[in-house]
């Protein structure tokens, strides 16, 4: 017998494989892959929002104080935010540290 790791039968697939549920990408926990995470130094941060804009996984949200905080459920540890921060306010740290 052949084995299959299909997650859905073709007859039950939506038309054209469309995703019918809006915002379902929230369920994709890209944080699973992470080997590093960003650490914010609030002393240096000027709240410019570049990290928020550049994060490819939309991990950042702004807190009440106006700082941008990455949600580790979605942060995949790519380091783009740390690289792009104009004030070097973000440092990437290995997960075990």
């Amino acid at each position: 017998m052949s084995t299959s790791n299909a997650i859905i039968g073709w007859k039950n697939l939506s038309l054209g494989c469309a995703i019918l549920e809006p915002g379902s990408s929230r369920k994709l926990k890209t944080g699973d892959w992470r080997s590093q995470h960003p650490v914010l130094d609030k002393e240096k941060c000027i709240k410019c929002a570049i990290c928020y804009i550049d994060c490819p996984d939309l991990a950042y949200t702004q807190n009440e104080e106006g700082y941008f905080i990455a949600d580790m459920t979605y942060c995949k540890g790519c380091g783009i935010c740390a690289n792009e921060c104009p004030k070097d306010a973000i440092t990437m740290k290995m997960e075990e540290e």
Binding site: A6, I7, I8, W10, L13, A18, S24
Partner: peptide, 23 residues
Amino acid sequence: HPITMGAVGIPEVYTEAKKQYED
């Protein structure tokens, strides 16, 4: 009524997607 067309078809769904439109 937002929907997504043209999302990635991972190995676990690509064959089924092909079969659907071939059928």
